[in-house]
Nucleic acid binder design. Structure first.
Length: 459
DNA sequence: GTTGAGCGTT
């Protein structure tokens, strides 16, 4: 972690050892930017460890070689683990943190968290200082919601990684004589239900142009219930389709909260985001968070493109034949008058993780991972008329694997079935011959192929 | 007594 270079963990220190003592002691190796002794938050009792940050990371080499005795206790100095590493290790149980020089943090935003702000600092002053590093897209100082007191930290948003990097050259900056600490801001999480504004508002469009929202909803209830075998197919959830993927593309391109504007109508009940990817010309690019102009984004998400939220609803299949003519004029569009209730498929649902990695592009795959929705429903069509018709046959299958999706939304590698002729012919995404009690099946279709699959079947 | 604290709205 950039800002944690030069940071030492000091373990086993005496309860008598003060921060000043730490600073003094380690000051003999080099400039100490910060020395802290951690204390129990509630009791105030020292916890027996602390941190020392050197201005020059190179100093660590020296310090790490020596033994240190402070206040009569032998203390242990180690490189401090970054928080990310800690969390990662804890969660993954990974004992091999791989601290490397490329910046351990695996999540990058173009925002900087600034801690230790003096209460008197104004946003103007804040901004002016950081403008020296690059274009400041946004500045915010946080205040307590009720007391309006400054909370002592804030954020600076830049428009380039470079500016961020320049700031992070040093973990401490001097604003008018007060020292503040900078870190790359943690990406705010796209948490459904968490009430993030980032997700709000963009769903409203749903059905707007289609005009049959309500009927669709009604169907939805019925379709989805029996469909429950989907086993908590997350995108469905309470909030409906709109939440579909929490595409989360931290990394270079910033957070791309997928799941915007699922059903912008565009004629087909489900035109959805897949449009762009799957070539439905009627669908203006909804869904992708990508750089598409007009794609809704979080207001604090000044980042550029490619969130690639990997949403789905890719296919032309509309809910109910009545929709059909309207939309999905794209390739493989579904002819009007299709089977009642139609089989709707949701393509490419899921959680797209976009562009992990640095801005060096080494991982900068614009597409990232997209969990490809769709179930691996097995035997084609054999369920017609079968029990529980609303359920996908072969439903044990779970999702059809995740794969790499490319920027064009093609579903992934290792998932060849989706592309294969057989697959399309077999229509294994919810057979259109829906004989279920509710007049239709809901199939999780592969965005790419499903409508074609149906088409093929009809022919 | 051995890995922190603060992370988002206006």
């Amino acid at each position: 972690m950039d800002s944690d270079q030069g940071k030492l963990f000091i373990g086993g220190i005496s309860w008598e050892t003060s921060e000043e003592k730490l600073r003094d002691y380690f000051g003999q190796y080099g400039d100490v930017l910060q020395a802290v002794v951690m204390k129990d938050k509630t009791t105030g009792r020292p916890r027996g460890f602390g941190f020392v940050v050197f201005a020059d990371p190179a100093v660590l080499d020296m310090v790490l070689q020596d033994k240190h005795t402070i206040d009569g206790r032998m203390v242990e100095a180690k490189r401090a683990l970054s928080r990310e590493e800690q969390q990662t290790n804890a969660r993954a149980g990974n004992l091999n943190p791989a601290r490397n020089t490329s910046g351990g943090g695996n999540i990058r935003t173009k925002k900087i968290f600034v801690g230790g702000l003096p209460p008197t600092l104004t946003e103007d002053g804040f901004r002016q200082y950081f403008e020296a590093f690059g274009f400041v897209a946004d500045v915010v100082i946080m205040y307590d919601q009720s007391t309006q007191r400054p909370r002592g930290f804030g954020f600076i948003s830049f428009d380039t990684e470079d500016a961020v990097d320049r700031v992070l050259q040093r973990s401490f900056h001097d604003l008018n004589g007060k020292q503040v600490e900078v870190k790359r801001a943690l990406p705010k999480e796209a948490n459904p239900g968490g009430g993030g504004r980032s997700m709000g508002g963009s769903y409203q469009n749903y059905g707007a142009s289609g005009g049959n929202t309500s009927s669709y909803d009604g169907r939805m209830e019925r379709y989805m219930q029996p469909q429950g075998t989907g086993g908590g197919f997350p995108p469905y959830g309470s909030s409906g389709y709109s939440t579909a993927g929490y595409g989360y593309g931290p990394a270079t391109n910033g957070v791309g909260y997928g799941g915007y504007s699922g059903y912008t109508g565009a004629g087909a009940g489900y035109g959805g985001p897949a449009g762009a990817a799957y070539g439905n010309p009627n669908v203006p690019n909804a869904g992708y968070v990508s750089g598409a102009p007009g794609a809704p984004r979080s207001s604090w998400n000044s980042q550029g493109s490619s969130g690639y939220g990997a949403m789905g609803y890719g296919n032309a299949g509309s809910w109910g034949a009545q929709n059909a003519g309207a939309g999905s004029g794209g390739p493989g569009s579904v002819p009007a008058g299709q089977s009642p209730g139609g089989a709707a498929g949701y393509g490419n649902q899921g959680y797209g993780y976009s562009s992990y990695g640095g801005n060096d592009g080494s991982y900068g795959n614009p597409a990232g991972y997209g969990a490809v929705g769709g179930r691996s429903g097995g035997t084609p069509n054999s369920n017609v008329g079968g029990p529980g018709g609303a359920e996908l046959q072969g439903s044990g299958g779970g999702y059809m694997g995740s794969g790499y999706g490319d920027a064009n939304g093609n579903s992934g590698y290792g998932n060849a079935a989706w592309r294969s002729e057989q697959s399309q012919a077999s229509g294994n995404y919810g057979a259109p011959q829906a004989n279920g009690p509710h007049g239709g099946q809901v199939g999780y279709g592969g965005g790419y192929g499903s409508s074609q699959a149906r088409k093929a079947q009809q022919q």
